[in-house]
C-alpha cells in the first residue's frame, strides 16, 4: 500500500476535503490577515506543533512529561549558540540542536523507564531535569548566562540564516506543524504506534504479550524531544533572544501541555483544536481586559474557561467536535 493510501486509510472523504481546505486556507492566510492576525496564527501553529510533539509522549505512549521546556530550550540554545559564536546557520545547527535534545530525552527516559518511574514520579523527574538545566545555563558564559543570549537582528530576508520577518517564520512553523501532523499519523499507523497504545492502556499487559516496553517508550521520548527541539530552534530565531529563566521555565512546559489536553489527548487534531481554542480565548480575554482596563481579568476568565472546558469536555474538544462534524476520529 502506498504511503498516502496508508496515511489516509479509514479517514472519511469529507475529513480529507476539510483538511485540504484548511491547508489551502492556511497557505493564503497571510494575504488576507493583517500583521496582528498573522502573529496570532503563528502562535496557534506554534502551540499546535509543540502540542503534537508532547502528545507523542503523553497522548500516544502515556508518559507524563512536565518538563518539555527542557528540549525546546536546549534546541534553541544549541542552534542559537552555534550561530552566535561560530556563524553556523540554523539549517546546519538544527542537527546539533535535535541531537542534544534527543540525548537529553534519552537520559531522562532511560533513568525514568529503567527504574520504573511512572506517573507523577516520572513527571517530577522531567521537571527536575528542566530545572537543573536552567540553573546550569544561568551560569554558563557560552550561553550568555542569566543575562541571556541575543541574536543579531537583521532587516534583510536571509532564509539560509533564518533572518527575516514574520512571513518567513509563518511558513516555517506551518511546514513544521503539517510535517508533525503527518509524522504522527504515520507513527500511529505503524507497529510502533500500536505498541505505544498498548503501553498507554496497560504497560504490564503489553510486556506480557511481547511488546518491547522500554525500547518503545525510549523511542517515544526521543522523537518527542527531537520534535520539541525543532520548535525551540524556530522560537530562538523568531524572538532572537533566549533567557534561561524563560526558556526552561515551568510555565513554558505547562503551556506546551495545554493545547493537547484541551483539544483531546492522544488525538491527531486535538493539539490543533486546543491551540485554536486557547489562543482564541486568550485573545478574546486580552481584548476584554484592555477594554475594561482591569489588569489580570484575562487570567481569571481564561482559567474559568479552561475549567469549564475540562469539566464538560473531559476527553477534549476535538472528539466531541469530530463526532458532531461526522469526521469520526476515534481516540486510538
Amino acid at each position: 500500500m502506498s504511503l498516502v493510501r496508508r496515511l489516509t486509510d479509514g479517514v472519511p472523504p469529507r475529513a480529507l476535503w476539510a483538511l485540504g481546505f484548511l491547508l489551502a486556507g492556511l497557505l493564503v492566510a497571510p494575504a488576507v490577515l493583517g500583521k496582528y492576525g498573522l502573529s496570532i496564527l503563528i502562535l496557534i501553529l506554534y502551540f499546535a506543533y509543540v502540542g503534537q510533539a508532547w502528545n507523542i509522549m503523553m497522548g500516544f505512549a502515556g508518559q507524563l512529561s512536565l518538563g518539555h521546556a527542557l528540549y525546546a530550550g536546549l534546541g534553541g540554545y544549541v542552534a542559537a549558540g552555534l550561530f552566535f559564536h561560530y556563524g553556523i546557520g540554523p539549517w546546519a545547527g538544527v542537527f546539533a540542536a535535535v541531537a542534544a535534545a534527543a540525548a537529553a530525552g534519552a537520559i531522562v527516559g532511560y533513568l525514568g523507564f529503567r527504574f520504573s518511574l511512572a506517573g507523577v514520579y516520572f513527571a517530577l523527574l522531567t521537571i527536575a531535569f528542566s530545572e537543573f538545566t536552567r540553573l546550569a545555563f544561568d551560569h554558563w558564559p557560552w550561553a550568555g548566562g542569566s543575562g541571556g543570549l541575543f541574536l543579531k537582528v537583521d532587516a534583510t530576508v536571509d532564509v539560509w540564516n533564518l533572518r527575516g520577518g514574520p512571513l518567513l517564520f509563518y511558513y516555517l512553523i506551518l511546514a513544521l506543524a503539517v510535517g508533525a501532523f503527518i509524522l504522527c499519523r504515520a507513527l500511529l499507523e505503524s507497529r510502533l504506534g500500536r505498541y505505544w497504545l498498548a503501553i498507554r492502556e496497560d504497560a504490564e499487559a503489553a510486556q506480557a504479550v511481547g511488546v518491547p516496553v522500554l525500547r518503545s517508550k525510549m523511542i517515544a521520548v526521543v522523537i518527542s524531544a527531537a520534535l520539541t527541539a525543532l520548535a525551540g530552534v524556530w522560537n530562538a530565531f523568531y524572538y532572537n533572544n533566549l533567557f534561561p529563566e524563560t526558556a526552561f521555565a515551568m510555565g513554558r512546559s505547562i503551556e506546551i501541555t495545554l493545547a493537547p489536553i484541551i483539544g483531546g489527548l492522544g488525538t491527531l487534531f486535538g493539539p490543533v483544536v486546543g491551540a485554536v481554542v486557547l489562543t482564541g480565548l486568550g485573545e478574546v480575554f486580552t481584548d476584554a481586559s484592555e477594554y475594561f482596563q482591569i489588569p489580570g481579568m484575562k487570567q481569571i476568565f481564561y482559567g474559568l474557561a479552561l475549567l469549564v472546558i475540562v469539566m464538560y469536555r473531559p476527553a477534549g474538544v476535538w472528539p466531541w467536535l469530530a463526532e458532531r462534524l461526522g469526521f469520526g476520529e476515534r481516540r486510538p
Binding site: T286, D287, Y291, L321, E323, L325, G326, F327
Partner: peptide, 29 residues
Amino acid sequence: PRLTRRGLGQAAAAGAALIGAPLPLRHAF
C-alpha cells in the same frame, strides 16, 4: 452523525466568533 449544511454553518460561525471576537473590540478601541 452526518455533516449537514446547518451543522457546518454553526461550527464555522462558532469558530469565526472565537477567532474574530477580538476584532470588533479592537476596532472600536
